[in-house]
Design a protein around this nucleic acid. Structure first.
Lengths: 128, 128
DNA sequence: CTTGACATACGAATTCGTTAGTACTATTCT
DNA sequence: AGAATAGTACTAACGAATTCGTATGTCAAG
């Protein structure tokens, strides 16, 4: 079966972040987590999670009266798909310009930059 | 209600790419460039460019009978904004995880990785 | 001067993302 | 048992994004 669309809409992503963080959740769990940030209706969360389940991002099983949801794919896989879609859409598939932007725009703390530079060194020397 | 996109929507971006590449364009120029990739109506392009002008991404001036459009902001500025929005939405504002994904997923050719590693070295040693 | 080419203006249809109300069911509390 | 509570299903609605048709105006060639 063809894998479902790797991209999530903004609100879908918000919900998936909570699911990835908590592991197994009910609609109520997600609802309460979202309530901390903003006003939202319980049924809205339910609708979104039903859609996410239809799209293959969530799996559910019944437990007592309510459904318990869990992520169908690991976070890394989905995030990787979103990055790929972004790189394709904005940079026609080549990641170098994005990397250059990130490095140049000082959006990253210096010590992290250095850490990453070391990591690149290891990766590149390790695979030849 | 779907929130109004603060950045460029996919189709808007497609048009802006053409504008940035060509400099000054008429609707027809963009229409013909898009036709190479896919079927689209002339009036669709016109509508999109009108919207882009209303949103402040394009400027127009009359020349003979038609409008000539040009980008209101340089490509780098707009792309930077899109990256920022993406990092905020997907990574809660921190760019390191994105960088890590890019480096780890081998989406980048080795020589480019090395080039970037050197660039980081210069940047980080240069600013302390 | 009429016709054809080409431009814009206007508006409308469609799909999608997002939000939420209402009806109904099942469980729990008094 | 009857009421309150908590869950799902179904439906509706709205705005944003995308697409394009029709009406209309203008200019130039025959």
């Amino acid at each position: 079966m063809r894998p479902k669309s790797p991209t999530l809409t903004p609100q879908e992503l918000e919900i998936m972040k909570i699911v990835w963080q908590l592991g197994s959740v009910t609609v109520r769990d997600v609802y309460e987590a979202l309530l901390v940030e903003r006003r939202i209706a319980y049924t809205t969360v339910m609708t979104m999670m039903k859609i996410l389940e239809e799209k293959g991002h969530l799996k559910k099983r019944r437990q007592d009266r309510a459904y318990v949801y869990h992520a169908a794919q690991p976070q890394n896989t989905v995030i990787r798909g979103m990055i790929r879609e972004f790189v394709d859409r904005v940079f026609n598939g080549s990641a170098e310009p994005l990397l250059l932007h990130l490095v140049r725009d000082r959006r990253i703390r210096e010590k992290d930059l250095e850490k990453i530079a070391r990591m690149i060194q290891e990766e590149t020397t390790g695979r030849r």
